[in-house]
């Protein structure tokens, strides 16, 4: 029972959804099942949120290092949760739009969460530069190809690159760096992308089959 039922459920649901693609009256099932997934995921929030609360409460209770910061997390979590679930400050009340400009929820989002997220994202500017500095070195042939391709694209997107090769006559203008950059993007890059995508497609098909057939069942945990 502990072992067979989950495997049967996986098989049954998966096969049903594959079949539904070919049966017009069942065509919308895939979409419905995605909604079911979303609903189950909301229930899972009880587990996730509960875990978050438990970890930080424990940290505060046992005064582990940095416990002060856990208070920040707890307060932020509870305030935001209250603001969102009770729609505090929302002129439309409980049926108002969640993201109305005056609501606490949106104010907290716009002024705290959004700058934090954008800045964390913006750190990538630094990291992408340091990764280029470190990784683009002509260590071997593969790395050199990587380096050259990246270098041409980078150069092609600077006015410097345009200046450098603008003397090349129009009948050979493919060799102008900006044109070469575009050509790499639409030629070799496209080929590589396609090969990767075809591989991924097959990988996912085969993985899905292994799951449906019950060969792959690590996610179910212990069989006993």
């Amino acid at each position: 029972m502990k072992r067979e039922v989950p495997l049967f459920i996986t098989f049954f649901v998966g096969t049903l959804l594959i079949a539904s693609v070919f049966i017009p009256p069942a065509e919308s099932w895939g979409e419905n099942f995605s909604v079911y997934f979303d609903i189950i995921a909301v229930f899972a929030f009880f587990l996730g949120g509960g875990n978050l609360l438990r970890i930080h409460l424990q940290k505060v209770a046992s005064k582990r290092p940095d416990w002060g910061y856990s208070i920040v997390t707890l307060v932020a979590f509870l305030v935001m949760l209250a603001a969102g679930l009770f729609k505090l400050g929302n002129p439309g009340g409980i049926s108002g739009n969640l993201t109305t400009a005056q609501s606490w929820f949106q104010i907290l989002f716009q002024n705290i969460m959004s700058p934090l997220g954008s800045t964390m994202y913006a750190l990538l500017a630094f990291f992408v530069a340091s990764a280029s500095y470190r990784a683009f070195r002509a260590k071997n042939r593969d790395a050199t190809i990587l380096l050259v391709a990246a270098f041409i694209i980078l150069l092609g997107r600077t006015p410097f690159g345009t200046m450098l090769t603008s003397w090349i006559p129009p009948q050979y203008d493919l060799l102008q760096v900006p044109n070469l950059a575009i050509w790499i993007m639409s030629g070799p890059n496209l080929a590589g992308q396609r090969a990767i995508m075809i591989g991924i497609g097959l990988g996912i098909v085969s993985m899905s089959l292994r799951i449906l057939l019950g060969i792959e069942r690590t996610y179910l945990g212990d069989d006993r």
Binding site: A41, A44, L47, N51, T218, Y219, G221, D222
Partner: peptide, 19 residues
């Protein structure tokens, strides 16, 4: 970053430790 993944990962690691 996902609650469901947390659940599945716990099952998986627990099974490994049992094995």
């Amino acid at each position: 970053s996902r609650s469901l993944v947390m659940t599945a990962a716990r099952e998986t690691i627990k099974a490994s430790y049992m094995a």
